[in-house]
């Protein structure tokens, strides 16, 4: 691998009970797969707010992986069905925004399926590598008005969050 090859940066949300343990298992069984996914642990895939995905993409991620327990095996009984619904809607929205199919993926992996998660990640990395960097929205970092708008929204968010916290 050359240093010049495009290395996609992917954010991966893993649920604590199945997919995080699947990633643990992939490690303990020394299953090799692409090191491009940076993980965030959440208790359940149902915790993944579509805003997390948008945030990651807008901060420069080339793709987002959401992984949860298989339908019917959710530690919280049925919350992954809600994830499924949300992700379907989100993917619909992303299509309209011009984000290519395959950049945001939902994967089911039980705690015993390290190989499955690894395989899904390899496929995803290959796919995104062929798509190239997302740089979304295109070239925004060169446009001062966009940067100012982001700054403004971010500070509003921060103050809102502060308000919630107090």
């Amino acid at each position: 691998m050359t240093d010049l090859e495009f290395q996609p940066k992917i954010i991966g949300f893993l649920c604590n009970w199945c997919s995080y343990r699947a990633a643990d298992l992939a490690g303990s069984t020394r299953t090799r797969y692409a090191p491009n996914v940076r993980y965030v642990r959440v208790m359940c895939s149902g915790r993944v707010d579509p805003a997390f995905v948008m945030k990651a993409l807008s901060l420069g991620a080339d793709g987002v992986l959401v992984a949860g327990c298989h339908p019917g095996e959710c530690h919280y009984l049925e919350q992954n069905y809600k994830t499924m619904r949300r992700m379907t809607m989100l993917q619909h929205t992303l299509r309209q925004l011009g984000v290519e199919e395959g950049r945001v993926r939902l994967v089911w992996a039980s705690a015993a399926e390290g190989h499955r998660l690894a395989k899904a990640i390899d496929e995803m990395v290959d796919r995104i590598r062929s798509l190239g960097p997302l740089r979304w929205p295109a070239g925004w970092q060169e446009r001062p008005e966009v940067l100012a708008a982001i700054e403004r929204v971010a500070s509003e968010h921060a103050s809102a969050a502060q308000e919630v916290a107090t």
Binding site: V42, M43, C44, G46, R47, V48, D49, P50, H75, Y76, Q79, K82, R86
Partner: peptide
């Protein structure tokens, strides 16, 4: 149980 699904919704 702390799954957070409501938080996201």
């Amino acid at each position: 149980k702390g799954c957070g699904t409501c938080v996201a919704a």
